[in-house]
Simulated assay, not measured.
Amino acid sequence: MESVHRPAARVICFDADGRVLLMNWRDPHDGSELWEPPGGGIDDGETPREAARRELAEETGLDTARVGDRCVDVERRSRWKGRLYVGVEQFFAARYDTSRPGLSRAGLLPYEAAELIGHAWVPPAEFASLPGRLEPPELAEIVKLL
């Protein structure tokens, strides 16, 4: 499997009840399901926080002003579309005052809209019971750091 490094940033979104937002994707390469926090690649000239906020807006429509300054560096090894993505990603936190804030799919690119199955606000204690793969696998530990 080809290995690629793509600088990326993600946002751990917490609702008022401590649940974490996870996006549920279907890999078009092999049909596997993946759960992960919103986020994605850092564009040229963007800081990790700017990328995290842009990706949050595109994937969820949530208020990006809630994304904090502090981040945790996370070493990633994730399979997607027949490639192995490796490298450090920055994980930021965003906290919302309501329970399960509503999301919008309006900012998704066409291929993202086709690959996104849905989302869920999940208590960290229930991460292990999700169907499919959780990325990164140590997400519950990362949540504790934020």
Rank of each mutant, 00 (worst) to 15 (best):
R77N: 11
R76P: 01
G45W: 05
A8H: 02
V88Q: 12
S99V: 13
P7G: 13
D97R: 14
G18R: 03
W25I: 02
R105L: 05
T64A: 14
H119Q: 09
A120T: 03
V143Y: 04
G118H: 08
A65E: 12
A113V: 04
E2Y: 11
G118N: 14
V143Q: 04
G41Q: 12
D44W: 06
S129G: 08
T98R: 11
V88Y: 09
L84I: 15
A65I: 03
G31H: 11
I42V: 12
A9K: 00
G18D: 08
E46H: 06
W121K: 07
R53W: 01
V4C: 08
T64I: 15
R100W: 07
E112C: 00
P124S: 04
G82H: 13
R53V: 03
E138Y: 13
E126S: 14
V11P: 06
R6G: 00
T64Q: 09
D97T: 11
G39Q: 04
N24E: 05
S32T: 14
R79V: 08
G68H: 09
P38T: 01
S129H: 11
P124M: 05
P37L: 04
P37N: 05
I42G: 01
S3D: 09
V122L: 11
D73A: 15
H5M: 12
E58C: 10
P28L: 07
L103G: 01
G39S: 07
E141Q: 13
G45L: 02
D30Q: 09
R26D: 01
P123S: 14
L34T: 05
P123A: 13
L21D: 03
P137R: 13
E2N: 15
A120I: 02
R133G: 08
S32K: 14
S3R: 15
L109I: 00
A106C: 00
R79H: 11
V74Y: 03
A16T: 07
T98Y: 05
V20T: 05
I42T: 11
V143L: 01
L34Y: 07
A65R: 15
E115K: 08
V143T: 05
W80P: 02
T64D: 09
V122Q: 07
L139I: 13
P38W: 01
R77C: 06
R6D: 04
V4Y: 10
V67I: 06
M1W: 10
L56Y: 06
P101N: 04
L145P: 01
R77F: 04
D73Y: 13
A93D: 07
A9C: 06
E126H: 14
A65F: 05
R54V: 00
A94V: 04
A52R: 03
E138R: 15
A52Q: 02
E36H: 09
A113L: 10
E141S: 14
R49P: 03
S32C: 11
L116V: 08
E55P: 02
L109K: 10
E126T: 10
W35Y: 12
P7K: 13
S104T: 10
A52V: 05
D44A: 14
L109H: 06
H119G: 01
P124H: 03
T60A: 06
K144F: 02
L116D: 02
A9W: 00
G39R: 02
L103M: 09
E46R: 03
E115G: 00
A113C: 12
C13Q: 08
A125S: 15
E55Y: 01
H29Y: 13
A120P: 06
P136F: 09
D15V: 04
D44C: 03
G41T: 08
L22D: 06
G102I: 01
P48I: 02
